[in-house]
Structure formats: structure tokens, C-alpha cells
């Protein structure tokens, strides 16, 4: 496969937290969703990739040199205006596209001369995203780009990402804990929990092969632990995360098999019990 980013045995240690060792490869031309709880290591992972922090060991290979970045917190000096951002960036990026930038400003009704301090959170985020897009990157790295945005702005932003990904050479790495954002647009999912990768899979595979098997508590005793990955017991029923759901459905014909959402996947994996 044609990979944009290859990460080998990446480790970053903190006093109370360790990321990795992680080995990941990210395919080109996809929207790659990085999901996980707050504190799972998503930001640490992205910062290591971008060279903002120095990993303790491991290898990171990025084939795309042209990266557009949106970080989780606002990062433009708040005394600047959109006009200022343009005049700074045109000297930083050789590929800076002035027309595109000002078209975006118009399209999103962002003021040219208002200082960032006086902009709403949604406006700031949009400005950051269009800045990242206006130098024609081939890889977008976005850390929680939609958190804290209202549904309207969120939709606008997601549309922008979908436009960007129309070009087959473009790739997006998108971290979020709001899994519903990724539900419809992602092609590939990397799931981090406590600094470790729990799962990396194509979205289609997740949709077609994974499922939730539901049954009563008594019936649960009859299920072979080899058939599920995680389980969670409720008051009356039990839910199991299964792979190869069609095969398993045939084996347990009297039980219900539901398709899985990313949210359920996250909850079952984090809150559930791992099968032996």
C-alpha cells in the first residue's frame, strides 16, 4: 500500500504516562481518524509526528513534506487580523495562495481586519483551517478541529475536509473524541487507549466485519470467549464486540447482532472487559 506516514516503535515517556511503543502506517488518499478518550495520547502522538516534542525512541517517516496543521488550541497571536496572517504566511510558504485565502475568508464571512482576540471560537477555528488549506498541503494534520464548535460550523468545517480529500493525492489525519464527526467521513480508524493502539482498521472492514452481539446474561455463559474481543455486562443483557460477525452470527443464531458505531466501539473497548 502507498503509505504517507510510517511510524515504527515510537515511544514517548512521561512521569505518569507512556505513549507506545506504536507502530502505525497511514495510507495515502484517506481520511484517517485518530480516536480515543481525553488523555489517551492523541495529542502526544501528533506532536511527536510533527516534531513539536522529541520521542524517546522510534522512527517516524513522513513522505509528504507539505503539511497543513491545525492544533487543538488556538495558536495565532490574538492581536493579529486575518490580513496579518496573510502577510505573514505569504513569506513563510512558497505555495501560499492569496486568492484562495481571501476567497475562503469571503465564503466563511470572516472579517479581514478584526483582531483574532475579538473573534468567536468558531471564527478562529475556521481561520486556522483555511490558513492550513491555503498553502496547498497534501497532508492535513488536525488535532481536535471540531471540538467546541456548534453543529453549523462543524458541518461547514467537515465539508471543507471533504472538498480537500476529493484529490486522491491528499490525506487527512484527524483526531477527535467526538466520534460522530468521523462516522461518515473517515476511511481508516486508529484507536488509541492509554497510549497504546487498540485497533487500526479500514472503516469498511469495521463496518462489515465488526459487530455487537447482544444476549441475555444466562446465554452469555454459553458463548465461547474466543468468539468475542470485549464484553460488557449490563443489568439484563450482555454486549460483546465481535470480529467476523457473519460467521459468529451463524454460530449464535438466536442472538441479536447489531452493526457497530465508533462510539460503541470506544465504550466497549474502554469500559468493557477484554476477552482472554
Amino acid at each position: 500500500m502507498n503509505d504517507v506516514i510510517q511510524i515504527n516503535q515510537l515511544v514517548k515517556k512521561y512521569q505518569n504516562f507512556q505513549l507506545g511503543p506504536l507502530t502505525v502506517s497511514m495510507p495515502k488518499g484517506m481520511i484517517i481518524g485518530l480516536i480515543g478518550e481525553n488523555g489517551a495520547g492523541k495529542t502526544t502522538f501528533m506532536k511527536s509526528m510533527l516534531g513539536i516534542i522529541h520521542p524517546d525512541s522510534g522512527e517516524i517517516q513522513m513522505k509528504e513534506e507539505h503539511v497543513g496543521v491545525v492544533l487543538d488550541q488556538s495558536f495565532f497571536p490574538e492581536l493579529l487580523t486575518a490580513n496579518d496572517i496573510h502577510s505573514i504566511m505569504k513569506d513563510i510558504y512558497k505555495t501560499w495562495d492569496q486568492t484562495l485565502f481571501f476567497n475562503y475568508l469571503k465564503r466563511f464571512k470572516l472579517p479581514k481586519n478584526k483582531i483574532i482576540k475579538e473573534m468567536s471560537k468558531g471564527m478562529r477555528k475556521k481561520l486556522e483551517i483555511i490558513t492550513a488549506l491555503s498553502h496547498h498541503p497534501s497532508l492535513l494534520v488536525l488535532d481536535e478541529p471540531t471540538s467546541g464548535l456548534d453543529p453549523v460550523v462543524r458541518n461547514e468545517v467537515l465539508d471543507l475536509f471533504l472538498e480537500f480529500i476529493q484529490d486522491e493525492q491528499h490525506t487527512i489525519l484527524f483526531s477527535t473524541h467526538i466520534t460522530s464527526d468521523l462516522e461518515h467521513i473517515s476511511d481508516y480508524i486508529i484507536f488509541l487507549d492509554q497510549g497504546q493502539i487498540v485497533l487500526q482498521e479500514e472503516r469498511d472492514v469495521l463496518q462489515n466485519d465488526y459487530g455487537i452481539l447482544k444476549c441475555g446474561l444466562k446465554e452469555f455463559e454459553q458463548v465461547d470467549p474466543k468468539d468475542y474481543l470485549y464484553y460488557k455486562k449490563g443489568k439484563y443483557q450482555c454486549e460483546m464486540l465481535v470480529k467476523e460477525k457473519h460467521k459468529i452470527q451463524k454460530k449464535y443464531k438466536n442472538m441479536v447482532m447489531d452493526p457497530i458505531t465508533l462510539e460503541e466501539l470506544m465504550i466497549l473497548t474502554i469500559k468493557g472487559v477484554k476477552s482472554c
Partner: peptide
């Protein structure tokens, strides 16, 4: 101070500089 406050350095490192 503004660099610190607005976390500019985190971003600056990701620029092609």
C-alpha cells in the same frame, strides 16, 4: 509573552522553518 500565551511556538515548529 504573546508567544507563550497563544502557544505560538507549538505552531511555529510545524511551519517549514
Amino acid at each position: 509573552s504573546y508567544d507563550d500565551y497563544n502557544k505560538w511556538n507549538t505552531y511555529a515548529i510545524t511551519l517549514p522553518l
